[in-house]
Write a protein that binds this DNA or RNA. Structure first.
Length: 501
RNA sequence: GCGGGCGUAGUUCAAUGGUAGAACGACAGCCUUCCAAGCUGUAUAUGCCGGUUCGAUCCCGGUCGCCCGCUCCA
C-alpha cells in the first residue's frame, strides 16, 4: 500500500468516527479486535445499501433471459442452526486447519500442507517440505542435509499425521536444524457457543459463518410454500461470523459482518447463461451506485484457488485504498453446483430434489450464488465518495449517490431569526416523512454547508428573505456548490427526481 | 499467531521524571442576507493493570487496541 493510500485510509477512518459513521465496538473499553459499531450516519448508509439490494433482488427483480421478470423470494433464517448443518456444509472440518509455527524461520504452515520425508531405516532426521515441492528441490536439499540418501529412502507423510512427540526429529521446510516446529494450533473459524442454560458439549452450537446455509436448509420449505418454479432465487441479508485470524483494513475484514446473498437455483444445462446474467446484473448494481467501472475488476478465480464446492467463481473486486493500485473482493459470484443440496440431503436424510412437472423429471438444481458483503459495500461506497477538494471550506466532501446518502437534504434557515426559522421548520415537517433530512439552525451558513459536505448530503435548501416574498428557496448542490432557486412547493418533486432518478 | 512501529481532548498534533498545550471540531451566547467570517465563553485527554521512584503521561513489564509486513481469509 502506498503512503498516500495509507493516509487516505487513516483520513477515512478518522472522518467516519468524527462524523458518526463507524466506531470501534466497545470503544470505551479500548475496543475489541474485528468488531465495529455503526453510528447514526453509518446505519442510514448501511440501511440504504441493504434496502436497495433487497429492492433490486426481491421486490423488483431484473428481467430474465427471456425478457420476463424472474422470480426471487426472501428469507431470514436463524443465525444458529443444528450443528449437523455445518458438518454437511463442510465448515466443521474445513474451518479447523491445524497450523504449526517454525521458531527458527518465523514462518507458519498449515500442517496438512507440509509433507514430511521419514527415513525408512529410522536413521537420521526427517525432512519437511511444502507439499507442492518439486522432486528436484527435494533431492537438492537432501544432498545437503541427508547425505547419501535420496527420495526413495524415505516414506512420505503429511505433517498432520505425525505425532507431536516426533516433531523434535523434523527439520522444518525453511531451516537447516531439527526441532524448530511448534505444536499444531487449531484455528476455529466458527464462533462457538452453547444453547440452553446448562453448559455441556451436547448443547454446543455455532454462529453461522455464512448466511447461505439457511437458504439451503429452507429450500424445501420455500418450494412447498411459495409456488416457485426452477429457475428461481432465494435471497437473504443477515449477519455472519468468522473468527478471522487477522481482522484488517477497518471494516473490510471483521469478525462480525453482514452478507447479502442470493442463491439462484437453475437446471445444470442453463448454468453458463445464468452465470453470465448474474455477473452482468451485479456489475450494473455497483455501477448504478456510483462505483465507476475503472475502479472495478473482475477476477476469474483460478481453479487452484476455488472453494471446495465451486467449479467457477468470479470475484467482483473494488480498488479499495488499502489495496490500491490493486483490487480486493467486494462480491463473489460462484457456481456452487448442487454441492449444498447434495450434502444436506445426505446428512439430513431428507429428499431435497425438485420435481419438474413439464419435463417429468427429478433433479437437484444447480446454484449460482452472487454473494456480497453489505459492510464491505458500505466501505466501498465511503471510499469512493471520499473526495478531497481544497477549494471548499471542509477540504473534503463525500460524493455519495443521492440514493445512498445518509441524509438526503439539509434545511437551513439563513439566520437563526424567527422569520427564517419558522418556514424552515415547516419545510422540515413536510419532508421528513418521505426523506431523511436535517434541520440545522445554529451557526453561520458556511459552517453548516461545510458540515453537510463532510457527511455527503447532496442538497441544502436555504430559507432567506426572498422565501418570505415569493415562496422560493435556494438549492445548493453538494458537488458543484452552485445554487439555484426553486419554488417551495417543488422541493419534494425535486428530491424525488434527484434520488429516484 | 509471529516480527516491527504506535497509543496524549471528538479529530489531527505538541510537551514534560514534578499530573499537560494548540488547531480544528463540539456546545452556549452575541453578531450575521449564502460557503467553517468576527467576538465572548464552556466542556473534554496521557488506553488499561502492575512495577521502579518521594513523585510516572514519560522508564520497565504485562494487557488491550491500532498500523505495517508475514501467516491466514475454508
Amino acid at each position: 500500500m502506498s503512503d498516500q493510500m495509507k493516509d487516505r485510509m487513516k483520513d477515512i477512518v478518522s472522518l467516519c468516527k468524527r462524523r458518526g459513521f463507524i466506531f470501534a465496538a466497545s470503544d470505551i473499553y479500548g475496543g475489541i479486535n474485528g468488531f465495529w459499531d455503526y453510528g447514526p450516519l453509518g446505519v442510514e448508509l448501511k440501511n440504504n445499501l441493504r434496502d436497495r439490494w433487497w429492492h433490486d433482488m426481491v421486490i423488483a427483480p431484473p428481467l430474465g433471459l427471456d425478457g420476463t421478470p424472474i422470480s426471487i423470494v426472501g428469507l431470514d433464517s436463524s443465525i444458529i442452526q443444528n450443528p449437523k448443518c455445518w458438518e454437511a456444509s463442510g465448515h466443521a472440518s474445513g474451518f479447523n486447519d491445524p497450523m504449526v509455527d517454525c521458531k527458527e524461520s518465523k514462518k507458519r504452515y498449515r500442517a496438512d500442507h507440509v509433507v514430511v520425508l521419514i527415513p525408512k531405516d529410522g536413521q537420521g532426521y526427517a525432512l519437511a517440505f511444502d507439499k507442492d515441492a518439486e522432486d528436484i528441490e527435494i533431492e537438492k536439499r537432501l544432498k545437503k542435509l541427508a547425505k547419501n540418501k535420496s527420495i526413495s529412502d524415505f516414506d512420505r507423510k503429511s505433517l498432520d499425521q505425525i505425532p507431536v512427540e516426533d516433531f523434535p526429529n523434523i527439520i522444518a521446510p525453511d531451516t537447516k536444524k531439527a526441532g524448530t516446529l511448534t505444536e499444531p494450533v487449531q484455528f476455529n473459524m466458527m464462533f462457538k457457543t452453547t444453547s440452553g442454560a446448562k453448559e455441556g458439549s451436547d448443547s454446543e452450537v455455532y454462529l453461522r459463518p455464512e448466511t447461505c446455509a439457511g437458504i439451503f436448509l429452507n429450500f424445501k420449505n420455500v418450494l412447498d410454500s411459495s409456488r416457485v418454479k426452477v429457475p428461481f432465487g432465494i435471497a437473504q441479508i443477515g449477519k455472519a461470523f468468522r473468527n478471522e485470524v487477522t481482522p484488517r483494513n477497518f471494516i473490510f475484514r471483521s469478525r462480525e459482518f453482514e452478507q447479502m446473498e442470493l442463491e439462484w437455483f437453475c437446471a445444470e444445462e442453463d448454468v453458463p447463461k445464468w452465470f453470465d446474467f448474474w455477473v452482468e446484473q451485479r456489475t450494473n448494481f455497483w455501477l448504478s451506485l456510483g462505483i465507476p467501472k475503472s475502479e472495478l475488476h473482475f477476477l476469474d478465480v483460478p481453479k487452484e484457488d476455488l472453494s471446495h464446492y465451486s467449479s467457477r467463481t468470479i470475484d467482483v473486486e473494488y480498488r479499495f485504498p488499502f489495496a490500491a493500485p490493486d483490487f480486493d473482493e467486494l462480491e463473489g459470484i460462484a457456481h456452487r453446483g448442487n454441492y449444498d443440496l447434495t450434502q444436506h440431503q445426505e446428512f439430513s436424510g431428507q429428499k431435497l430434489d425438485y420435481f419438474d412437472q413439464a419435463e417429468n423429471k427429478r433433479y437437484l438444481p444447480h446454484v449460482i450464488e452472487p454473494s456480497t458483503g453489505l459492510t464491505r459495500g458500505v466501505l466501498a461506497l465511503i471510499c469512493e465518495a471520499y473526495t478531497v477538494d481544497e477549494n471548499r471550506p471542509s477540504g473534503v466532501y463525500l460524493n455519495f449517490h443521492p440514493s445512498m446518502a445518509p441524509k438526503k437534504a439539509a434545511i437551513l434557515p439563513l439566520t437563526a431569526k424567527p422569520h427564517h426559522v419558522e418556514p424552515a421548520q415547516k419545510l422540515y415537517m413536510e419532508l421528513r416523512d418521505e426523506f431523511v433530512v436535517d434541520l440545522d439552525i445554529k451557526q453561520n451558513i458556511g459552517k453548516r454547508y461545510a458540515r453537510q459536505d463532510e457527511i455527503g448530503t447532496p442538497y441544502c435548501f436555504t430559507i432567506d428573505n426572498e422565501t418570505l416574498e415569493d415562496h422560493s428557496v435556494t438549492v445548493r448542490d453538494r458537488n458543484t456548490m452552485e445554487q439555484q432557486r426553486i419554488p417551495l412547493d417543488k422541493v419534494k418533486a425535486f428530491l424525488r427526481e434527484k434520488i429516484y432518478g
